[in-house]
């Protein structure tokens, strides 16, 4: 029996061998630039290495020094998680609410708004970097000072009181990306039969329709939107920091990604790899949790 199976598998491979060649270029690039770095990160997190000379085995020294570093990494991890709650989870809820709300409005109008939101999400980071670049002549300061809300211009991205809020808000501003589009079209393609049945029953409450007929058929789109939101929340603040030319400082916005860039500039491979391993584990765990929840719910349908 198993021999037969093996034979048919071999036959399928031979029959479709050009398909493997077709997929090969992508997976070769994917392997070199995605899989290799990840494997290397796990390996080199146990070494002391500065890219010149030979790596030196150091056991778990890197990990322990990461948590010793005057609490720098610990607070970075805490900041990253907070940012994820605000931008990742919060942004997802925002996307979902917006997609639902727009679905209740006339289609043409909703489509225009959707495209505006998407265009902002794709292009907005550079603009927000200008707004938050600091100095009297950045748009935010020239508005606040010009209108009399504040007397002196301040550097909002390097001010401990406002930095987190500024980054979180500007991230939420650019949150309506491809995941949001997927949710929007998911609402449109939702099982119309169920909605019609609800209408016949005389149910007009949109909330009832949402919970009982729309959400159950939206799980794939919701999971996709959430998956896209995870790396966005963990990394995009760093892009904003780089674009606005703000130095990395010990603030609420000092995230794991900031730590990685800082150590990366000093070529401290061991510490970077450690931090990457922790970051990737964190993201994987969050995605796995979401996936398990969705899988459990979609079984009941």
């Amino acid at each position: 029996m198993s021999d037969k199976k093996r034979n048919s598998a071999a036959k399928l491979i031979v029959k479709n061998k050009d398909a493997y060649f077709l997929a090969a270029p992508f997976f070769l690039l994917f392997f070199v630039f995605t899989v290799v770095p990840m494997i290397a990160a796990v390996v080199f997190s146990f070494f002391r290495y500065d890219l010149s000379g030979l790596p030196e085995f150091s056991g778990i020294d890197n990990f322990s020094s990461l948590f010793m570093l005057g609490g720098k990494f610990t607070s970075a991890a805490a900041n990253s998680l907070l940012m994820f709650l605000a931008v990742g989870a919060g942004g997802f809820v925002l996307c979902f609410a917006a997609a639902w709300g727009l679905d209740l409005l006339p289609k043409k109008f909703a489509d225009v708004i959707t495209i505006i939101l998407f265009a902002i999400s794709l292009s907005g980071t550079a603009a927000t970097a200008v707004w938050l670049s600091g100095g009297l002549l950045d748009p935010l300061n020239s508005f606040l000072v010009g209108a009399g809300f504040s007397d002196v211009p301040s550097e909002y991205l390097s001010d401990g009181r406002y930095a987190f809020l500024c980054v979180a808000l500007s991230q939420l501003f650019t949150t309506f990306g491809i995941g949001f589009l997927s949710l929007r079209s998911g609402f449109r393609a939702v099982d119309r039969e169920k909605a019609d049945a609800a209408k016949i029953e005389g149910i007009k409450n949109p909330l009832w329709i949402l919970v009982h007929s729309q959400i159950p058929s939206l799980y794939p789109q919701m999971l996709f939107a959430f998956a896209v939101q995870i790396p966005f929340a963990f990394t995009n603040g760093e892009l904003l920091r780089i674009l606005s030319g703000t130095p990395a400082e010990d603030l609420g916005t000092y995230s794991i990604m900031t730590f990685i860039f800082e150590q990366g500039a000093e070529l401290d491979v061991g510490k970077v790899c450690c931090a990457e391993v922790i970051l990737l584990l964190l993201m994987t765990l969050i995605y796995a949790a979401a996936r398990i929840i969705v899988k459990k719910f979609s079984k009941d349908v």
Partner: peptide
């Protein structure tokens, strides 16, 4: 791999 946006692996790729 969707959760691996370009920025997450940026520094590792830099070393490579």
């Amino acid at each position: 791999s969707i959760i691996l946006s370009p920025l997450t692996l940026y520094v590792l790729r830099y070393f490579l």
